[in-house]
């Protein structure tokens, strides 16, 4: 029995190390930045982030985005440095122990214009043992669509309080996107869709099926 458990664990470890290898190599030595000064500055920034325990993959991705978009060396350095600062800020806002994905989502939310206190509120409104990535991502998308952050937060936290699941939160974002594509104003789309999810959450049948995953744990 124990052997059976160890084999999948070993396989998972090997797979994890294989999939992580290109990323690590990219982050440390083979960033395709032609300018030596820029490459060194970005590598230093990544090393500094790593030493602080911050996720480095978003920094590598940001540098790659700059390279692909033919940004100047100065722009790439500034972008990576700003992102490192946002990651640090997001980690503090999502304390005590956010995952790398949560920190990255928090940093993106800040970049999109979600005010820092709201990032904190989203964390507080979501069960502490569940990843807050999806609520943060949907909040980011709604704000990027031009919906006032306070209204988006109000709708999201109402759904969270009623026990919405991550997939329901995500569906809210997709539905708003479809409505906007169909010509509805973003905030009107949010109102309509949030009410739709809310009505589902209020129904006894849905409540029963959603409760185990979505409700806040008892304090």
């Amino acid at each position: 029995m124990n052997m059976h458990r160890r084999v999948p664990t070993l396989v998972a470890l090997v797979l994890a190390s294989v999939s992580a290898a290109p990323l690590l190599a990219q982050g440390t030595s083979v960033l395709p930045i032609a300018d030596v000064k820029t490459r060194s500055a970005v590598q230093r920034e990544i090393a500094r982030a790593e030493s602080k325990g911050l996720p480095t993959q978003p920094l590598v991705a940001k540098a790659m985005e700059g390279v692909t978009k033919q940004a100047t060396g100065e722009q790439i350095r500034d972008a990576v440095s700003s992102l490192a600062k946002r990651l640090e800020q997001a980690r503090a806002l999502l304390a005590p122990s956010p995952s790398a994905a949560e920190v990255a989502s928090g940093a993106d939310a800040l970049r999109a214009g979600v005010p820092a206190p709201m990032v904190k509120k989203i964390r507080a409104a979501w069960p502490a043992d569940q990843s807050v990535v999806m609520p943060l991502d949907v909040m980011t998308e709604l704000v990027a669509r031009g919906i006032p952050a306070s209204r988006a937060l109000e709708r999201l936290t109402s759904l969270m309080a009623k026990g919405a699941t991550p997939s329901q939160i995500a569906a809210l974002g997709s539905s708003v996107q479809s409505d906007v594509a169909a010509g509805l104003a973003p905030d009107a789309a949010l109102e309509v869709r949030a009410r739709g999810v809310m009505s589902l959450l209020n129904s006894p049948a849905a409540g029963a099926s959603l409760a185990p995953t979505g409700q806040r744990p008892p304090r």
Partner: peptide
């Protein structure tokens, strides 16, 4: 049709 965000560049 997507939400747009500034890209730092």
């Amino acid at each position: 049709n997507l939400a747009r965000v500034r890209d730092d560049f």
